[in-house]
């Protein structure tokens, strides 16, 4: 798992939920572990990740991003 990718994901999260909450973006964390990663912010987080990595997610891809590891795997798959 690339440390650079997870750093960039954390940065994307920080732009939506703040730097303090984004510290919870670590391998193994789920939506429930990260304060602010909720239904209200979910789509803003998806858009922040799309912007950071220049990606376009399908609805189903977005729906699968419910853990940090799932986000990392998705980004790795799409950017490799």
């Amino acid at each position: 798992m690339s440390a650079e990718i997870i750093d960039r994901i954390r940065k994307s999260f920080a732009s939506v939920i703040g730097e303090n909450a984004a510290k919870g973006v670590v391998s193994g964390a789920t939506m429930e572990d990260v304060e602010g990663w909720d239904s209200l912010n979910f789509l803003n987080l998806v858009m922040a990740i799309e912007d950071e990595f220049d990606l376009q997610m399908s609805t189903l891809e977005a729906a699968s991003l419910n853990t940090v590891d799932a986000v990392v795997s998705y980004v790795e798959r799409k950017t490799s």
């Binding site: 239904s39 209200l40 979910f42 789509l43 803003n44 609805t59 729906a63």
Partner: peptide, 16 residues
């Protein structure tokens, strides 16, 4: 709203 859009992500729709 964002919440409505979020719930829609998880709603059943035809398989690809």
């Amino acid at each position: 709203t964002n919440v409505e859009r979020y719930i829609a992500l998880g709603r059943l729709q035809p398989r690809e």
